[in-house]
């Protein structure tokens, strides 16, 4: 049943997108541009050196590929919905959503799809395939761990988004905080080893974008030690729990305040 709903949603989104034919072409070019803007800096850097913080070009491109997947997920699924939530708070339309029976968080999260971001997904797949072509084939365990970590990482980022959105329930003036989150997440496009000290800790625990980009790459390269993998899952779970608590709190406060 759910898959039928999702199919219908995608169909509607595609139809809307097709209606603006120039948009369709443009989104393709934006997709190409996004992929290029992530890949080309790396290409330029590796023009001058063979290794950066122990990572080769192809290994770094693997991280870039995962980053593109992250961008596609966040831009295509998370942002349209949670962004709309923020608008809903501003305009008061959130009340209509809250009147509906299913868990508000889930419904809120997946009503909209931005199909344009599919190009990023495609870009990520192409870059990833290219990167793997010059790297030793990953083991089955590596692939499974990578998939697991990717999923955990995406969940963590999703949780973080929810947390940030909750702030706009309390402070409507800072509802553009999600753009700042986007800017910080941008730091995940490079292998996390290039960052040192507190910055690296920040990017693995607080804004755990490294979980989505670097860790799965490490898993595929066979360089991930189990400690890190466990840490990743713990952080992801922690993030989801915290965000869930914050969401419930925020809703409670919102409904009691706006009556």
């Amino acid at each position: 049943m759910r898959s039928g709903l999702i199919l219908a949603l995608v169909r509607v989104a595609l139809m809307t997108a097709l209606q603006y034919r120039a948009s369709f072409l443009l989104e393709f070019f934006v997709g190409v541009g996004t992929t290029a803007s992530v890949v080309l800096p790396l290409v330029f850097v590796f023009d001058h050196t063979a290794s950066v913080a122990g990572w080769s070009l192809h290994a770094s491109l693997l991280v870039a590929a995962f980053f593109l997947v992250l961008q596609a997920m966040v831009g295509g699924l998370v942002e349209p919905n949670l962004g709309a939530l923020v608008e809903g708070v501003r305009s008061g339309q959130l009340d209509y959503l809250l009147l509906k029976p299913p868990d508000a968080q889930f419904v809120a999260s997946f009503q909209r799809v931005a199909p344009a971001r599919l190009w990023d997904l495609l870009g990520g797949a192409i870059v990833g395939a290219y990167a793997l072509s010059a790297l030793p084939t990953p083991t089955a365990a590596g692939v499974v761990t990578a998939a697991l970590l990717l999923f955990a990482g995406l969940a963590a980022v999703y949780g973080l988004w929810v947390l940030v959105i909750c702030t706009s329930f309390w402070f409507v003036r800072v509802d553009n905080l999600r753009y700042l989150l986007g800017a910080v997440v941008d730091a995940g496009r490079w292998p996390v080893s290039i960052y040192t000290g507190w910055v690296r800790i920040f990017l693995t625990m607080v804004v755990p974008v490294a979980l989505v980009t670097s860790y799965p790459a490490l898993a595929l390269l066979g360089r991930l030690d189990t400690g890190l993998a466990v840490q990743a899952v713990v952080v992801a779970v922690g993030m989801l729990v915290v965000s869930r608590v914050a969401w419930v709190q925020a809703l409670r406060q919102y409904t009691s305040a706006s009556s």
């Binding site: 169909r11 139809m15 097709l18 209606q19 034919r21 369709f24």
Partner: peptide
């Protein structure tokens, strides 16, 4: 004018 339905949308391309 927007033609209705999916086929109509493709045609409008």
């Amino acid at each position: 004018l927007k033609a209705p339905g999916f086929v109509g949308s493709v045609r409008s391309l």
